[in-house]
Amino acid sequence: MKATSYMNPYVAGVLLGLVLLATVYITGRGLGASGAVKSVVATSVKAVAPTHYQSAAVYRDYAAEHPDGPMKSWLVFEVLGVLIGAFISGLLSNRIGLKLEKGPRVTNKTRILTAILGGLLFGFGSQLGRGCTSGSALSGMAVMSLGGIVTMMAIFGGAYALAWFFRRLWLR
């Protein structure tokens, strides 16, 4: 079956905005994503190198902020929800299936390697910038946070500034 087309972006935007608004109204905080990956990292370190987890200051701080363990975090539950919600959406619109999406001039190997590299940079940057596109930029815009809006401009500004150099990855 053919995949149905995407939702009108403005309608999707209003929908997303209302989800964010409800989140702020109920919990007083915005949405996020990279924090859940951080929980995964902390859990892995705790399992693989428990002594390191207990001795390194950065993990000690993290453990103090998450007394019930790294996975018991608001963002972990939220991101589980994202997985479910996106899956439902994909199911309704016939978009489920293993697929590798890439620019027309790129090999599969290059795409996987650049995806890993991009993820690495984004993960690192999200920790330095205290939040990613969701937690810092989108939620920051909604609550009028100066830090969030500066981070947002840096993310998109940085991507635009580098777009020309990486055009071979994406353009014909």
């Binding site: 996020g32 590299l117 940079l121 984004f122 910038g129 401009m153 940085g158």
Partner: peptide
């Protein structure tokens, strides 16, 4: 905020996702 944002921008253009969207895309395979 500035340097972190710029690094994230580089990650965006090289990797083609941001954390939230990557979770979303992984969910549909």
């Amino acid at each position: 905020a500035l340097v972190g944002g710029l690094i994230m921008g580089a990650g965006f253009i090289i990797g083609g996702f941001c954390p939230g969207t990557s979770v979303c895309a992984a969910a549909i395979g």
